[in-house]
Design a protein around this nucleic acid. Structure first.
Lengths: 277, 277
DNA sequence: CTAATAGTGTCTGTAAGACACTATTGC
DNA sequence: GCAATAGTGTCTTACAGACACTATTAG
């Protein structure tokens, strides 16, 4: 427990000059997912300035470091993610439309050369949102929209198929692919599918979330029984929806999210045989 | 697809001056785990300089940004993690003792104030290693050692119990707790337990890995059957160990890691009932 | 009316966990 | 010899998926 006397903290700060170091920028990017018309959508902005001007990108931007030069308060990473979502889409943060989104860290992307301007480390986040209004472009964004994930032609290797009209900037195709895989996995063992619904939802609505994220049809009867059998997944409100299914059928009952943080037993995807090896 | 003409890339670079921005530093830290004497150990270094001089910390350090000031090549995040492991422990990288460790990104920690010197964003990594030699302190480290995780008195909330002698610097107790939880979860649905063993191992050795990481005893017979029944988890070498169990018993057969990347069905922890809510 | 849907019942195959048992080893 | 261990057999229970069926709704 003998401190090395070569340095102490005041010594470091007295001798430290940021101009001695090559600069690194830190950004946050957000993969914000929602369900619209039964299909999985991601929030994208069209870039208004170089690099990749005109291409589509995940909403994001620089983290406020805090310090004397820019005067802004230092912000935590999740706060930066929410701020960027709000700034570039016109959606209001706390208490507003963004108040009910689930947000978690996805991963950090820092390969040299991923941004042509300088060394940029991006901390990607993943958000699950209930149906939100159309965004309004703001900040550096020339446009902003909920885009069907299907239309982006993502490949397993983190790229986009040739011929896809909406091209993604930077390594955002890779980040989005990773976010989708995380979302698919999280639906298996957490109750986060409910984060895509509002406060109250029916079991068929919940099933539609699973089908949209997994891209597979599920057996309605077995799904219904499974959801109710997992302790804490959903709890009944006692009420009944005021409409039946889209093309007929009885009025489903209403539920809200339960208090479980993990699903046990998990709700596994039907066809995972291919991914195992 | 009309680029906003206000900026182009050369414009940005011509007007960009890092001195206009508050500096941010990016570091990598590594939670390196191994099994020694049937107990889970983590690699720690004792800090030789402020801040937190004399306290223990995860091995880690600044990422080489690349650029004219320091002259170093820009390095990718995983490469930085391996380099820091090598520098601070004397273990040799590629091809050497570190060649067979599993390394993955754990998460990024960037709360303002987590480093008293300046704004520091740390990209934490998680490593699973087979039994490695004792490390030799290097770089800024006054000491380096494999430390039993049990001796660190970690609490669920990411702190350390009062009275624990080895105190962890920065938010490293939180990072280590997160790494342990990730490790426990990964053993359930991936074959990564084999990364803690050498190239060949017996089923009882593999069971000892699970018991050390999960902190629970497993039923030997059922574990044996389960491991062999999961396709691709292990494959037989045909050989037999040259010794029986520590206190007698037949000589177990030898296996090596199979080609599965996911375990299906998963090998679930026995007592997860408490964690669900 | 017709077709689709919500919700429940039932059956079957698979797998996990408890227990039992044998054969083989270290000490 | 004794105690511990590797590996296998068997039984019970739980659960996922397939199928069937009824009641209720939209159009």
């Amino acid at each position: 427990m003998t401190p090395d006397p070569r340095h102490d903290e005041s010594d470091f700060l007295a001798n430290y000059d940021p101009r001695d170091y090559d600069p690194v920028a830190v950004t946050v990017d957000v993969v914000a997912l929602t369900i619209r018309d039964g299909a999985l959508h991601v929030l994208l902005v069209r870039r208004g300035s170089a690099p990749y001007a005109g291409m589509w990108a995940l909403p994001g931007g620089f983290v406020q470091a805090g310090g004397p030069l820019q005067g802004a308060e230092a912000e935590d990473l999740p706060d930066a993610a929410v701020r960027e979502l709000a700034e570039e889409t016109g959606l209001s943060a706390k208490g507003g439309a963004l108040g009910r989104v689930h947000l978690e860290q996805l991963g950090t992307y820092g390969s040299p050369g991923r941004d042509p301007r300088m060394r940029v480390i991006s901390v990607a986040h993943l958000a699950f949102a209930p149906e939100l209004p159309d965004p309004e472009a703001g900040g550096d964004a020339a446009d902003a929209a909920w885009v069907p994930v299907e239309a982006l032609g993502l490949t397993e290797s983190g790229g986009q198929r040739p011929g896809t009209t909406r091209r993604l900037a930077f390594d955002h195709a890779r980040i989005l692919s990773d976010g989708l895989e995380r979302a698919r996995a999280k639906l298996e063992y957490t109750p986060l599918a409910a984060a895509f619904c509002g406060g109250e939802f029916t079991i068929p609505e919940l099933r539609a979330v699973y089908e949209a994220v997994w891209g597979e049809e599920l057996h309605a009867g077995n799904f219904h029984r499974k959801v109710l059998s997992v302790p804490g997944f959903v709890e009944s409100t006692g009420a009944t929806s005021d409409r039946g299914g889209r093309r007929g059928g009885p009025r489903p009952r209403l539920y809200r999210a339960g208090d479980a943080r993990l699903l046990h037993p998990a709700l596994l995807r039907p066809s995972r045989e291919e991914e195992i090896r």
